[in-house]
Design a binder for these strands. Structure first.
Lengths: 208, 208
DNA sequence: TCTATTTCTGTCCATCGGTACAATATTTTT
DNA sequence: AAAAATATTGTACCGATGGACAGAAATAGA
């Protein structure tokens, strides 16, 4: 199994070479063309194209780990969502990187404990609601919305612009506005900011 | 690193003293006032106020483990959601308690394997990374801002419009815009929505 | 004292966001 | 079948937002 490093920061390469002496540091293109199935690819999130790169590499059978200088849950979730199998601090100790390599190359997923706790906590709400409370906080806010409106509301709650929502749902921006007007009226909020607050207050899952 | 025990059950104290001879058994108030950052606090779930106590202790930099006579998934998830880092049976073997202490005091999370398997379907590994530099998340995001910029950022994160912020801080709308421009640049966000997300993601306090 | 930082303000302008009028087609309910 | 709800798109209007140029006063540090 080979290791590949993708970064713009030259100072990182020395660090990584130390952790994995037989690793190769290269560009996105080179990795895409020469990496073999099963190889492990470490990508710095400072590489702007890391999401698309991840999306391309994962289907090729490569294992991707994202490294971030300022790890945060949202980016971690995005990384996992795109198929990455690990999310670590760029400056994690070499011993940690070795452990990460071990875990992810054996079908494991490596993620920080804060995120893990949140994921578990979020699942808890979903589970407990189904088992004992049919009327849940999901319905409290989003239940009055139609399926389509829910989709728009969630996209907006993630910070998307109207244009982005339109692209995501493959409808025109005008339609997004129409749905939003209905959402605002039904939920009694004045704009997308208040909508965001309303949803995030009781429905953390919108970020995942 | 000190150990603190919070319980109403006197019989537990002897047990815990055996596991951790240098530990202190005391009340919630005492712990809150004397425990130091990094200390490990064991709380029996028979203490009715354990959720609120956990919520107060975690932000203080304390590591919290909840002990339950009748462990169940729902309570465990609630504990984790509140920031506890471990959930164990009150009568777990002393050797187990020692392992728990080792894991949680090294940034790990301890939960029963049944729960872990149930919630995450076996795809996650309960390994954890030690994220160095535990600069708190407040400074992570807002530390680079000036005092005034922080005020503007927090107001906007609560969903206020520029006009409202201007009124609140008794400055012109133009000044609010100037501060916002600086905030966006410093925090690398494109607009107030992303700012909102960035702040609420790791700093729940701003929205509450 | 000089400099850098911070705070506050101005105008202009392009874009975004939301509403007010719409209309049409599809699906669901009665 | 008729009615209601849902999903879609259009034009026009206007306030909100954010950047592009600014400038000026106060404060803190060297």
């Amino acid at each position: 199994m080979g290791h590949w490093f993708v970064t713009l920061d030259a100072s990182l390469k020395a660090r990584w070479q130390k952790a994995f002496p037989d690793a190769q540091s290269s560009t996105a293109d080179v990795v895409e063309q020469h990496a073999k199935s099963g190889d492990l690819v470490w990508i710095a999130s400072s590489v702007a194209s890391w999401p698309t790169l991840t999306q391309r590499l994962v289907p090729m059978g490569l294992t991707v780990v994202i490294l971030s200088y300022s790890p945060h849950d949202k980016e971690a979730l995005k990384a996992l969502d795109l198929g990455a199998r690990g999310y670590v601090h760029t400056l994690a100790a070499v011993s940690v990187l070795e452990q990460v390599a071990l875990v992810v190359s054996n079908q494991g997923i490596w993620v920080g404990q804060e995120l893990l706790a949140k994921v578990i906590g979020g699942s808890f709400r979903a589970l407990s609601q189904r088992t004992e409370a049919p009327a849940n906080d999901y319905d409290d806010h989003l239940g009055v919305l139609t399926e389509r409106e829910r989709g728009v509301a969630l996209a907006v709650a993630r910070g998307a612009t109207n244009k982005e929502v339109a692209r995501q749902l493959d409808i025109t921006e005008r339609t997004v506005k129409a749905h939003l007007s209905a959402i605002f009226r039904k939920l009694s909020v004045r704009d997308r900011l208040q909508l965001m607050l309303k949803l995030s207050s009781t429905n953390e899952r919108v970020v995942s």
